[in-house]
Design a protein around this nucleic acid. Structure first.
Length: 259
DNA sequence: ATGCCGGGATGTTCCCGA
């Protein structure tokens, strides 16, 4: 089974590229983030024509996540249990489904903006809620994984120049401690192959030739429980999808599992 | 080569992303 995650930065703007990518990469399950679409504008029909059912948590202009599956959907969820609110709202940042026997979460972790911004405290609260979900599901003998845009670079090597991130979000000890907490809960990161260069970045800013100069970040991550990790056959970042006009600023992470 | 930001609403400007 092929499972992938991709921050597509607007499913409306990206629909032609999304449909092309589904047809060529042939994932069985795809976790999407940053849909930037209202629930009633989610493109169910063209996805259904390619054989995909969807669990959608749509937030309108911002956020929005989904799980697409062509191997069935059971026990759908459209929010993280005990998800914290931001400015009085539970944002559309998590969706889950059991697809072909694998429990899959698609998550869009809050950005944090600046370390002294309320959004950063919210980010850490959100990650604490995510850890609770991880801790309750990781012991399951069935494969379980949380895929998505974590907005955290796990190590200093996961950004193109750590010196430029002094005092910035995405690299702080507290954020990395949240990833360590997921591992303590029984999850392990699935590290993708690099198809080019040493570090498999997943995001490159649109500005200042970020992609051609490979000024990227590795922030789209896959964490799985023991059953999932044991089933992994291959994993890679499909940087081809970042090329050309009309690309998302993120590339998909693809994981092949033998389940 | 992959080429100098893009998306969407509050709309012709602003907020957000990381």
């Amino acid at each position: 089974m092929r499972i992938a995650t991709w921050n597509i930065n607007s499913i409306t703007a990206r629909l032609p590229r999304l449909l092309d990518w589904l047809a060529s990469a042939q994932p069985d399950v795809l976790c999407l983030q940053e849909l930037k679409v209202a629930a009633d504008a989610f493109p169910q029909e063209p996805l259904r024509e390619l054989g995909y059912e969807s669990v959608v948590s749509a937030g309108g202009r911002w956020n929005g996540v989904a799980v697409l599956s062509r191997v069935g959907i059971a026990d759908p969820a459209t929010a993280l249990p005990d998800a914290p609110e931001y400015e009085g709202v539970v944002e559309a940042r998590a969706a889950a489904a059991t697809c072909g026997g694998v429990r899959v979460w698609s998550v869009y972790v809050p950005n944090g903006r600046e370390v002294d911004h309320p959004h950063y405290a919210y980010k850490l609260e959100w990650l604490a809620a995510l850890k609770e979900t991880a801790a309750s599901s990781a012991p399951s003998p069935s494969p379980f994984a949380i895929l998505g845009d974590y907005n955290i670079a796990p190590t200093d090597q996961d950004v193109w120049d750590i010196a430029l991130f002094d005092g910035a979000t995405h690299v702080t000890p507290a954020e990395r401690a949240a990833l360590a907490a997921l591992e303590k809960s029984g999850l392990k990161e699935v590290y993708p192959r690099a198809l080019k260069y040493d570090v498999p970045f997943t995001y490159w800013d649109y500005r200042q030739l970020g992609f051609p100069k490979n000024k990227g970040m590795r922030i789209d991550l896959v964490y799985g429980n023991a059953g999932f990790d044991a089933a992994v056959q291959d994993a890679y970042v499909d940087r081809e999808a970042r090329k050309g006009k009309g690309a998302s600023d993120h590339a998909p992470v693809v994981v092949d599992v033998d389940v």
